[in-house]
Each structure stands twice: as structure tokens, then as C-alpha cells.
């Protein structure tokens, strides 16, 4: 004798016509004899029909004009953006696709690739093909130096706290961990927080790399760098979750990338670039 607890999980599939042959017959037979399950089934059927019959919402007549206006504004912004930023933006979609797989490491690698593009633009005005990503990972990833100016714990944004820190600690952030199957739809709501956490991990990774090289800088340059980074982190902490925070984090990442590149150029080319020369 089949019990109600075994029937109930099958009711949705039964009502949607997805149970065939004996499976459907068993449910149907149980429903004939069980008043409680029949009531549940009747309610769910009424609900299903009610949802399907909900009146369609009228599309506002102004919507297409609004889409066109937004597209036009975005195109104008594209035209006004410097060429190196367009080059970076071309890389961004592939970075985001890789992010769930490779986490911060993938992001940092692609970000470094974007840097190579930027540097190429800085040296020659003509557009060049971006370097293969594999070539770009030339900067070693050192352990975080004791120099506290760059410690990720500086990050005061409450939503990711210290969880997005360096040393692989980002893996402990629950929003970066793949959700369980049961929680997939609910988990989509955390998409924005996950993206922010991935950006934060990248920023922390870059900061950890800079912690090492920074010690070789003159004092005034260190001071200038610390002040600017502090401002950017205040902006991150003050931004609301979602695009605002992501924008602030991208600004921080861009600044850290710029600092790394400047340092690399200075040491590789033996050019004593003045601070901010490439900015």
C-alpha cells in the first residue's frame, strides 16, 4: 500500500502529464481512495490553471524608445572611451565566463592579459592584437608581505568582510562556492554579490602582488599610492551592493593594474618614469 508521503512528491509531475504508464496509474489509484491527497491535487491543479490564465501585462508603448535612447547613450559613451579601455572591455566578457571555473586566478590572468594590451597601446599608437593570455602571466604572485598598507583586511565593505582575502581565502566565501542543485534558482539572486566577491578577490590578489614591489618605491610615491588606494577602497565600502560596488571595485582593480604595469616598465626598461606618467 503506497503512502501519502510517497505520492505527494509526484503530484506535480502527475498533474503536468509527465507520469506515464504504471507510475501515473499508481498516483491516480491513490487519489481515488485518499481524500487528503485529492484535495492537495485539486488545489495544485487550480493553482497551475490560475497561473497559466494570469492576464498578460501590456508592454508600455514607450519601451522601445527607451531602449533606443539607452543604446544611443551607450554608443556615445563607447566613442568617448579611450582606446585602451575598449581593449580591456573586449576581454571582460571572457573573463566573466572563466570566473566561476578559475575564480580569482583566472580573473587575474585575464586582467594581466588586458594589461599587456594596454602597455602595447601605450608604446605604439597603432592598435595591436592582444598578446595570448598565457604569455601575460609574468608577474609572480608573492605571499602577502607584512606591510599592512596593502593587507586585504583594510577592506571595510561589510558584505564580503575578510572572506575575499588573499592566499586562496576567497574560496571560503559562500557566494563563490558552487551552489547545491537544490538551491540553484534561489542562488541566482546572489549573482551580483558573487560578481562583486570575484572582483574583490582580484583586487586583493593584485594588492598582494603590489605589497612586494611597493617596498622598492621612493617614499613619496608610496605615500601617493597609499592615499589613492585608500580613497578607492572607501568608495568601494560606500557603494551599494550591485553595479555601484562592481564599478568601484573595477576602478580599484584598474588602479592596481596601472601601478603594477608602471613598476614593471620601470624595472624592465630601466626607465625611471615619474609617478603617474602613464595615467
Amino acid at each position: 500500500m503506497i503512502r501519502c508521503e510517497e505520492i505527494e512528491p509526484q503530484l506535480t509531475a502527475y498533474l503536468d502529464g509527465e507520469l506515464e504508464g504504471p507510475a501515473g496509474s499508481v498516483v491516480r489509484g491513490h487519489l481515488r481512495g485518499c481524500e487528503a491527497c485529492r484535495a492537495i491535487a485539486t488545489d495544485e491543479a487550480a493553482l497551475r490553471d490560475g497561473l497559466r490564465a494570469l492576464p498578460a501585462a501590456d508592454v508600455p508603448a514607450s519601451m522601445w524608445a527607451g531602449v533606443q535612447a539607452r543604446l544611443a547613450a551607450a554608443e556615445v559613451a563607447d566613442a568617448e572611451r579611450p582606446s585602451w579601455r575598449r581593449a580591456v572591455a573586449r576581454w571582460t566578457p571572457s573573463v566573466r565566463r572563466l570566473a566561476p571555473t578559475f575564480g580569482a586566478v583566472g580573473l587575474a590572468a585575464a586582467a594581466a592579459a588586458a594589461l599587456i594590451v594596454w602597455r602595447a597601446h601605450g608604446r605604439a599608437e597603432d592598435a595591436v592584437a592582444p598578446a595570448p593570455p598565457g604569455v601575460a602571466i609574468t608577474v609572480p604572485i608573492p605571499a602577502l608581505s607584512p606591510d599592512t598598507a596593502l593587507a586585504p583586511s583594510d577592506r571595510t565593505a561589510p558584505s564580503f568582510g575578510g572572506a575575499a582575502g588573499v592566499g586562496g581565502a576567497h574560496g571560503s566565501d559562500p557566494r563563490l562556492v558552487a551552489p547545491s542543485d537544490d538551491d540553484v534558482t534561489a542562488d541566482l539572486a546572489h549573482e551580483a554579490a558573487r560578481t562583486s566577491a570575484a572582483y574583490a578577490a582580484t583586487a586583493d590578489n593584485l594588492a598582494a602582488q603590489l605589497a612586494d614591489v611597493r617596498s622598492g618605491w621612493p617614499a613619496d610615491r608610496r605615500q601617493q599610492f597609499d592615499a589613492r588606494l585608500a580613497d578607492l577602497r572607501i568608495a568601494v565600502a560606500g557603494a551599494g551592493e550591485g553595479r555601484g560596488r562592481q564599478r568601484a571595485l573595477r576602478a580599484e582593480i584598474r588602479y592596481l593594474q596601472g601601478a603594477l604595469i608602471r613598476d614593471e616598465i620601470a624595472s624592465n626598461d630601466r626607465v625611471l618614469a615619474a609617478p603617474g606618467r602613464l595615467r
Binding site: 506535480t12 509531475a13 485529492r38 484535495a39 485539486t42 488545489d43 487550480a46 493553482l47 490560475g50 534558482t185
Partner: peptide
């Protein structure tokens, strides 16, 4: 399984509101 849970939650929410279709007991 998500759909099943979602409909169950809807039935819970609608329960006190009295969705009654013909034939329900």
C-alpha cells in the same frame, strides 16, 4: 523539484485564502 517546492509554497500561501475549485473536499 524546484517547481514542486514552489507550487507547494504557493499552496501554503493561498491555503488560508481559500482557493477552492469544484470537487475539492
Amino acid at each position: 523539484s524546484q517547481l514542486h517546492k514552489a507550487r507547494g509554497k504557493m499552496r501554503e500561501l493561498l491555503g488560508p485564502m481559500g482557493v477552492v475549485a469544484p470537487g475539492a473536499n
